[in-house]
């Protein structure tokens, strides 16, 4: 079984660049382009060696850096007339502006994170049902097999209106996306119901993809499904406790 480990070290090329600037204690208005370009490319190599899926945007910024570097190396030998417009224009200016803008939003994001979130730090009355006290429930909870799942799947499909089935949906969907989404929701909430997974856009394709994702996850033994009785809601749990390191 192959696990794809996603290490979100950097939020993108600008984030990486800001990190390098901070690490080297560089004045953002006067970036030594040669040094930063070299370190940037080295980091990309390192990320590649870790098998991280490098987004194309990282390479775009790499080429921008190389372009700026070459423009700064070139002597200003442009013809008198044309050169005049360019005087004083630092080739780094656009990049610096972009970096400062990104930095401002990065700070704004941290600021949002620091606020008292509803349902994380503060709670209103009755926002979520309380957990039933352990051991009081006499419900028999049975692990769900393929038959019950297919049954639930059929019921959802048949409950769709005909016109909903006709809907043309250009939304790009993939089973992988749904798998990641289900795993993320399980990480967040600890459990999720079959019904909840289908909420938000009850079109046929989405339901089919969700179903395939659940089947795939069960096959990989990454989730377990339980039901409290015939036709009861099916709840999905992670099969194993996640290790803190994700190792």
């Amino acid at each position: 079984m192959s696990y794809e480990v996603r290490l979100d070290i950097f939020q993108g090329p600008l984030d990486l660049l800001l990190y390098l600037i901070k690490k080297n204690e560089i004045d953002i208005y006067n970036i030594p382009i040669a040094l930063i370009t070299q370190q940037y490319l080295e980091t990309l190599e390192w990320m590649k060696s870790l098998n991280l899926d490098l987004a194309g945007e990282y390479l775009v910024l790499a080429s921008t850096l190389l372009l700026i570097k070459s423009r700064m190396l070139l002597p200003d030998d442009s013809p008198e007339g044309a050169g005049e417009d360019e005087t004083g224009e630092d080739p780094r200016q656009d990049l610096v502006r972009q970096l400062l803008e990104y930095q401002a939003f990065k700070e704004a994001a941290l600021d949002l994170d620091g606020r008292p979130w509803l349902e994380r730090d503060v709670f209103k009355r009755g926002s979520y049902p309380d957990l039933p006290p352990a051991g009081t429930e006499e419900e028999t909870i049975a692990e769900v097999g393929i038959v019950e799942l297919v049954d639930a799947f059929r019921r959802v499909i048949s409950s769709l209106e005909k016109e909903e089935l006709m809907q043309i949906n250009s939304e790009k969907l993939s089973v992988t996306d749904r798998i990641n989404e289900i795993l993320e929701r399980l990480r967040e909430a600890g459990q999720v119901s079959f019904q909840e997974l289908l909420e938000g856009g009850r079109d046929r394709r989405r339901i089919v993809y969700t179903f395939l994702a659940i089947l795939e996850l069960m096959k990989l033994r990454m989730i377990k499904a339980y039901q409290t009785g015939p036709f009861g809601p099916i709840r999905i749990f992670p099969a194993v406790e996640e290790e803190p390191d994700g190792a």
């Binding site: 979100d8 939020q11 993108g12 939003f105 990065k106 704004a108 994001a109 941290l110 600021d111 949002l112 994170d113 979130w117 349902e119 994380r120 709670f123 926002s127 979520y128 049902p129 309380d130 957990l131 990480r187 967040e188 909430a189 600890g190």
Partner: peptide, 19 residues
Amino acid sequence: KMKGRGPSSLTPAALETLA
């Protein structure tokens, strides 16, 4: 603990987009 939920949160990327 009473609600049986882990802290809900957004990834740094989602927070940036939201900001």
